[in-house]
Structures are given as structure tokens and as C-alpha cells.
Design a protein around this nucleic acid. Structure first.
Length: 556
RNA sequence: GCGGAUAUGGUGUAGUGGUAACAUAGGAGGUUUCCAACCUCUUGUCGCGGGUUCGACUCCCGCUAUCCGCACCA
């Protein structure tokens, strides 16, 4: 970071705090690391970014919005892999109360304790009885999961079950898959989106909004049929070149279409969502020249992903990953299916039904069951593999080594024709996951313009109208001769309209009021002056150009 | 988590073992006031908790937070 950037960052942060956009949370109690408030201006900004995001994806037509709890049972995040990948297991010494990592304590007793589950660690701890590294006592508490996820207890006392605050919104969309599938008339592809809070008990939150312990995230889980080739129309992006940092290729300039065709982007849907992400970010005010996509190297990939691209935005903290677009394969649905035994599958019909002719033997359960007892299952498998021309009695060698003689009365002929028209498969998932706080930071960072005006220091927040927290400021040139009343009535009318925020300001000189409005990015200011009293017109002044034009009050 | 630095009105800074200053911002009023003008009046500050002391914003200890390295990290 260069020196001018560092002081600019200080001025920007100071302004954000002073004007109620972004503030450290709980500051009267000394603050808390990694937790921020969106103030009276920032709250509205966050909401507009969220809304713009929802609208952007809903416009694709096959996307639904859902909302799932942040409090999540232990077993859900165990199945998803987060307990293993996101947690360290802790145990506390009963003598000196020092907390230790269970896997570290057990290193002398196991080659790779990091890979063990909670109950395996507990068992090994009970068996091996390692001494406390601090006081040498052997008095360990029950092993508990700690660290990157905030853990909690759902319910009271001994009946409570363990849980976490979610580290991502995605899991709720996977566990809702059956309802989503039904809602979408059992047809893929479709997507589900939600915006909400996620929590990670980061070891070391830094750099303001970049690494938070509680953060706003917005995720789309898009369920696709891996047996169908994904087709997407890239013509809206044409030959527009994007900066890509591809695994092993370095920085290249390519259109989305080329990148997908040349397999730099390994899946067309990933490429399509990268293009959609590019549109969204530039629409809400991210500078397209300071945006690039970087492909994860294979050893960098999260535990669930098979291909992943980050959208990185350049700002005061350098290049920061703000969106991750991951091909998660069938990892999540498969994991939850295994853990619960519930089907999380979609049906696909074959283009040609598969006809399976069976001509062979199977057992007659009523005879073979009593005859072979525990071995009956193995006998059945073996008999069904016998050729049709086998004659009985027949001696079989079972896999476990036993020899049995199968009599004719134990078997019956099995001749049938089955028509299989389709199959149940686990859908694949492509997930664009947006860090809303990081994006908001960069909107502010890119919009913050202190180029000055007439040689004096002057700052303007050049926010897109899609996200500007205040739409209009209404000023009376003076608050007298009826100008104040006209301005207040305009203000009241604007406020009564849906999704319009107007601010009324009558204090200070008119120039000062324009400056205050510019600082928080108000796109348009409306001023009531003497002429308004005579002909019912007002001036509208544009933030970015400073130009004014006069319109009738009724046309506002 | 380790090491270093820092913590004074909303913001940016000064300063002292004897209850704190400047600028700016904010509020009220004035000024026919259209790009941070001017005049008058005015609100508001020593991060938290201990200790030393007659007395601590100041010295000491601990905590918390912030910033910079290192480590970790969708």
C-alpha cells in the first residue's frame, strides 16, 4: 500500500464513521473485534445492496428466495464437513483449567489425530490419558468442538443439543432440497438464494470490513443435472475481455465465451455465473477495471469444491476476494443423504428406456431360508449369478469360504424383462457466494472521490443510484417566506413513496448542504428558492455534474 | 496466537501528578445564502478495571480495542 493510499484510507474510514455509514459495534463498551454496525446511512445501503442482489438473480427466472435459521444443529454441520474442517476439538484440564487441543495432546498416541472424529478423539483420550502440558494432571473434561464456528446449545440444560451459528447460508439450502425440488415441479436446473448472516470465530479479524466474525452473505445454490451439457448464452457479454488469473496460466485477458470454450473455465455454468457476477458488481458501482477472477489452485480448494473462481476486487487493502463461485459437485447433497438416509435426488428419464432381460435362478425363500439360515443372503447372491443352464443339486463356494450344496427345491427359475425408463441421481451444485460486507466496502472505496473542487478539498461519494442510501435531499434556500413549508411538503411527498428516502436539511449555507449530501452520495438535491414561490418550480442538482435544471413541483 | 506501536469532544490533533486546549463538525439565531462564506450564542472529551498518591488523563499493572509485521485463514 502506498503512502497516499494509507492516508486516504484513514480519511475514508473517518468519514464513514462520522456520517453513520460504518461504525465499530458496541463502542461504548470498548468495541468488539470483527463486529461492525451499519449506521443510519449504512443500514439503508446494506439493504439496497441486498435487494439489488436478490433482484439480479431472481430475474433469471428459475431462482427462488428462501431464508433458513442461523442456529444450526451439530449434526448438519458435521455431515457437511464443517465440524471436521472448521473446528478444533478442545478439552479443558480439571486441575488448572488450561484448554488444550485434543488432537495435539494425542499426537504421541496416533499418527494423524487431526483426522479423527470427536468421539474417536474422546475414546483415544480416555484410553491414553495424556498429562496436561501445563500442570501434568490427568483430569480432562469432555471433548468439545471449538474455534472457527461459534458453538452453542439448542435448548436448556441436559436436554439441550449442540449446535453452531452457521458459517455459511448454503447448508440450509441443501437441507431444504426436497421442498425446493417439489416446488420447481421436479425439474432441473433451478436455484435457491438467500441473504443473511454467517458467523466465523476468526482467530484474528483484521482490516475493518474485510474479515468479520459476523458477516452478511448472499449465496445462490444452483442445482444442475450433470448428465446434461450446460448451455448458456454468452452473447450479452460479446467479446468483452475480462481479466482472468487461471490456475497455472497467469493473468490472461479473455471473453467469458472464449474462456468456457477453451476450458479455462471448466464448466459453462460456472462461467455463466461469473458473467452474471461481473454484471451485478459493475451495476452497483464496482469499477470494472479493478475486478478480476482468480481460479483456485487444486490444493487451495475448500473441502467441498471441485473448481472454484474468486471474483477479486482491488481497493485499499489490495486485491480482496469478494465472491467465490464454486462447483461443489454432488458433495453436499451426497453427504446429507449419507448422514440422514433421506433421498436428496432428482429423477432423470433415459432417452431410450433400458431393457434388462433376466434369465437365471433365484432362491425360493421359503425353502432356502430355513435350510441355509445365516448364509441365505450369500447363497442368494451366488445363485443369482449362476448361468441359466446350471443344474441342481449344485455345490457353491461362498465368499467366506463355506461350501454349500443347493438342492433343486431351494431354487426357482427367474425369467423376466424389466424396462428401466430413468434413474435417480444426485444433482450437482454450482454456488456463487457473495461477501456482502466486502462488496459494500469496495463500493464505498471505489465511490470515494476526493479530487477536490476549485482547488479546495472536497469529497464526493459517487454511488450508483441502485444502492445510494438517500435518494433525494430537499433544501429550502431560506427557511422563510414560505420556502420552508414548500420544501417540507415536497420532502413529505417523496417520503410517502415506496422505496424512496428523502432527507430535509435547512441548516447552514446552501453550499454546505450540497457538500453534506455529496459526502454520503445523494444523487439528486432539490432546492426551493424565491422563484419557487412565484411559479412552483424547483431546481434539481445532479451530484456528479453539479448541473441544475428547473422543473415544476408536480413533475417530481 | 506471537512481537511492536497506539488509545484525549462526532472527527483530526495539543498538553499536564493539582479536574484539559485548538481546529473542524453539530445545535439555536442572524445574514435574498445556489456549491463546506460570514457574525453571535451554544452542546460535547481523557477506552475499561485495578494499584501507587492527599490528589491520576498523566506513573505502574491487567484487560479491551485499533494499526503494523509474522502465523492462520471460505
Amino acid at each position: 500500500m502506498t503512502e497516499p493510499d494509507a492516508t486516504r484510507l484513514e480519511r475514508l474510514s473517518g468519514m464513514l464513521k462520522r456520517r453513520g455509514i460504518l461504525l465499530p459495534a458496541f463502542e461504548i463498551y470498548g468495541g468488539a473485534k470483527g463486529l461492525y454496525d451499519f449506521g443510519p446511512v449504512g443500514g439503508r445501503l446494506r439493504n439496497k445492496v441486498n435487494q439489488a442482489w436478490l433482484n439480479h438473480w431472481l430475474s433469471l427466472g428459475n431462482i427462488v428466495e428462501i431464508s433458513c435459521p442461523t442456529v444450526t444443529p451439530y449434526s448438519v454441520l458435521e455431515a457437511s464437513g464443517h465440524v471436521g474442517e472448521f473446528s478444533d476439538f478442545m478439552t479443558v484440564c480439571g486441575a488448572c483449567e488450561e484448554a488444550s487441543r485434543a488432537d495435539t495432546l494425542l499426537e504421541p498416541h496416533h499418527s494423524n489425530p487431526d483426522s479423527l472424529t470427536k468421539s474417536e478423539l474422546q475414546n483415544l483420550l480416555n484410553q491414553s490419558q495424556p498429562p496436561c502440558p501445563v500442570c501434568q494432571a490427568v483430569e480432562w473434561s469432555e471433548v468439545t468442538a471449538q474455534n472457527l464456528m461459534f458453538n452453542t446449545t439448542i435448548g436448556a440444560g441436559t436436554s439441550g443439543r449442540p449446535g453452531f451459528l452457521r458459517p455459511e447460508t448454503a447448508q440450509g439450502m441443501f437441507t431444504s432440497f426436497p421442498a425446493l425440488y417439489r416446488h420447481n415441479r421436479e425439474r432441473l436446473p433451478f436455484g435457491a438464494i438467500q441473504v443473511g448472516k454467517g458467523y466465523r470465530n476468526e482467530i484474528s479479524p483484521r482490516q475493518g470490513m474485510i474479515r468479520l466474525r459476523e458477516f452478511n452473505m448472499a449465496e445462490l445454490e444452483y442445482f444442475i443435472n450433470p448428465h446434461e451439457e450446460a448451455k448458456h448464452d454468452f452473447s450479452p457479454w460479446g467479446e468483452h475481455k475480462i481479466t482472468l488469473l487461471a490456475d497455472g496460466e497467469g493473468e490472461i485477458q479473455m471473453s467469458f465465451k472464449e474462456a468456457v470454450e477453451q476450458n479455462v473455465i471448466r464448466h459453462a455454468t460456472v462461467g455463466y455465473f461469473m458473467a452474471q457476477t461481473f454484471d451485478f458488481l459493475t451495476k452497483i458501482g464496482i469499477d470494472s477495471q479493478r475486478l478480476r477472477f482468480r481460479q483456485h489452485e487444486s490444493d487451495e480448494m475448500a473441502h467441498y469444491a471441485s473448481d472454484c473462481w474468486d471474483a477479486e476486487i482491488h481497493g485499499s487493502f489490495g486485491w480482496v476476494e469478494c465472491v467465490g463461485i464454486a462447483h461443489r459437485g454432488c458433495y453436499d447433497l451426497e453427504s446429507h443423504e449419507k448422514a440422514t438416509g433421506k433421498s436428496l435426488r432428482a429423477r432423470r428419464e433415459f432417452s431410450e428406456p433400458k431393457i434388462i432381460e433376466t434369465d437365471g435362478w433365484t432362491i425360493d425363500g421359503a425353502k432356502a431360508g430355513p435350510a441355509f439360515r445365516a448364509l441365505a443372503g450369500a447363497v442368494k447372491l451366488a445363485v443369482e449369478n449362476l448361468p441359466a443352464e446350471t443344474s441342481f443339486p449344485h455345490t457353491l463356494s461362498l465368499p467366506e469360504g463355506e461350501e454349500v450344496t443347493v438342492e433343486a427345491e431351494h431354487v426357482k427359475r427367474d425369467q423376466r424383462t424389466e424396462t428401466i425408463t430413468g434413474e435417480w441421481y444426485i444433482p450437482h451444485v454450482v454456488e456463487p457466494a457473495f461477501g456482502i460486507d466486502r462488496i459494500i466496502w469496495h463500493i464505498l472505496d471505489h465511490g470515494y472521490d476526493e479530487t477536490g473542487k476549485d482547488g479546495e478539498e472536497y469529497t464526493v461519494m459517487r454511488l450508483s443510484e441502485h444502492v445510494a442510501p438517500v435518494d433525494y435531499c430537499v433544501f429550502p434556500l431560506f427557511e422563510k417566506d414560505g420556502m420552508g413549508e414548500i420544501a417540507k411538503s415536497i420532502h413529505a411527498t417523496l417520503c410517502s413513496k415506496q422505496n424512496i428516502v428523502s432527507m430535509y436539511d435547512s441548516s447552514g449555507s446552501i453550499g454546505r448542504r450540497y457538500a453534506r449530501a455529496d459526502e454520503i452520495g445523494v444523487p439528486k438535491c432539490i432546492t426551493v428558492d424565491h422563484q419557487s414561490l412565484e411559479d412552483q418550480t424547483v431546481t434539481i442538482r445532479e451530484r456528479d455534474s453539479g448541473e441544475q435544471h428547473r422543473v415544476h413541483i408536480d413533475s417530481l
